[in-house]
Design a protein around this nucleic acid. Sequence first.
DNA 1: CAGCATCCCTTGAGATACTG
DNA 2: CAGTATCTCAAGGGATGCTG
Lengths: 136, 136
Amino acid sequence: MTTRTAAERRADARTSHLTRVADCPTNRLLERIGEKWVSLVLKELADGPRRYGDLARTIASASPKMLTQTLRRLERDGLLSRTVTPAVPVRVEYALTPLGQSLMPVLYALSGWAERNIEQVEAARRSYDVAQRSSS
Amino acid sequence: MTTRTAAERRADARTSHLTRVADCPTNRLLERIGEKWVSLVLKELADGPRRYGDLARTIASASPKMLTQTLRRLERDGLLSRTVTPAVPVRVEYALTPLGQSLMPVLYALSGWAERNIEQVEAARRSYDVAQRSSS
DNA sequence: CAGCATCCCTTGAGATACTG
DNA sequence: CAGTATCTCAAGGGATGCTG
């Protein structure tokens, strides 16, 4: 003789599913590499270590705040390392860790798909938008 | 005899770089599959076509609003198709297009990396957080 | 059944200015 | 050089209620 309503059971199902989604490794990875500047930083570091200023110049549209935030998060995840050389002026170098390097093939696979299929996606968007316009 | 200051040139560099980033196929793909519910929907449809209600039950923590929004965007990108069968009640079926199917191997590669390395990432985060706490 | 409309709140992210 | 601090705004996303 349960006193739980159907609505309550649905709410619980949502909560428990939400927890599982938050725990899913795939989602956690996508949250990180889906961030605006992450893929650019990783690709830049794939060619070798870079100093903060180098990254800031190469990824010119990222503000210092966003660049730093991106680098810190990737460092926290163990994907890159941050090395401070105490000199005047200080020298800070970022480099991929082995873990970060192991991610690169996956990222390149993604880039490859994107470049091969972007034209088809664009075309789909155009035709979808046209259909919407005429049906509204 | 240019009258442009260094600051103006930096601002222009930012703007032009920002345009290139927005145009980059990799970033455009990551923006889409980085959305909260996209990977779950794609994986669900990988097993075959699903009705709206099926998806809503399986992906229980997504609200109707977010589920619909996700499905519409993926349809617009040409990754999945939406088929309405006019009956009472109506029946709406979603299925991966060939383009959508071609993306799945890439998504699975990503999942594979995530599952193999999540433990290492978690460990990195814990040790980073401990180091931060003790240095503050 | 398969949504749409509305309200609301949190988070992401840009601009600007300042510092060890 | 390599950041930090603060402010602000827009977008993402959730809750709720209604509909052809």
